[in-house]
């Protein structure tokens, strides 16, 4: 490691810190929105709401079968033509929410569907209405079962934010590419890039592993 230029690294590390903030900002709001989308859509699918269900299924197919970068290009460069002008950050957050929403929906839906029908029936036989049954009985269990899947989605979505440099947002990738282009300090720039992503992703990944392990051991199983 001694051939790395440490002066360069200390000089430009703050730039990476700034960029990491943007990456985390986009990931945080995008994932939060994605989760909200997932809760609503999975509930609609679970209750088989007539028309909405078809629309959601179409949305899932569309979102899962197209790359985020292409979605972002369409949002950022395409939509202004019909009068929808969003900032790069907004596009990035909406893009992550659009992509992540379908992944969260699928995860939560399979969680909801894995709950035994008898749970719903015994709640009904105790006089709980649909809302109480969902809130008290079905949703908490489905959430617990979905934890590993949700964690995997979160990690996946954080990684996906790396493409937002494609719409000129100054995230980690953008900074790295910039520094490589300007100073040819390739090794230093890339090392800092890898370290920055490790700092963001490793804790999330470790928490995910711990949660998953806890889930497996505590398992509700009757």
């Amino acid at each position: 490691m001694k051939y790395l230029d440490w002066n360069f690294i200390t000089k430009y590390a703050p730039l990476y810190a700034e960029a990491a903030k943007l990456t985390v900002f986009i990931a945080f709001w995008g994932i939060l929105l994605a989760f909200a989308v997932g809760v609503i859509c999975s509930a609609a699918l679970y209750y088989k709401v007539p028309v909405l269900r078809r629309i959601i299924q179409a949305y899932i197919e569309l979102s899962r079968n197209t790359p985020l970068l292409v979605q972002l290009f369409f949002l950022y460069f395409g939509l202004p033509n019909i009068g929808i002008v969003w900032s790069g950050e907004t596009c990035a957050i909406i893009g992550i929410a659009f992509l992540g929403g379908s992944y969260m929906t699928e995860t939560l839906r399979s969680g909801l569907e894995s709950i035994d029908k008898i749970q719903e029936e015994s709640a009904a036989s105790l006089g709980l209405n649909k809302w109480l049954t969902m809130k008290e009985i079905i949703f908490p269990q489905a959430m617990a079962i979905s934890v590993p899947g949700i964690c995997a989605n979160v990690i996946f979505l954080i990684k996906e934010t790396s493409v937002v440099s494609g719409i000129a947002l100054a995230d980690l990738m953008y900074v790295a590419k910039d520094l490589i282009g300007l100073y040819y300090k390739t090794d230093e720039s890339l090392t800092m890039l890898v370290i920055a992503y490790l700092i963001i992703l490793l804790p999330v990944s470790i928490i995910a592993t711990l949660l998953e392990r806890r889930m497996r051991h505590a398992g509700f199983g009757n």
Binding site: D116, I118, Q119, E121, S122, A123, A124, S125, L126, G127, E136, I137, P140, Q141, A144, F220, G221, N222
Partner: peptide, 16 residues
């Protein structure tokens, strides 16, 4: 339903 108590064959307690 509150006037009717029902117990099922499979254990239907809420595991959480």
């Amino acid at each position: 339903r509150q006037k009717i108590g029902m117990v099922f064959q499979s254990y239907d307690l809420f595991p959480h």
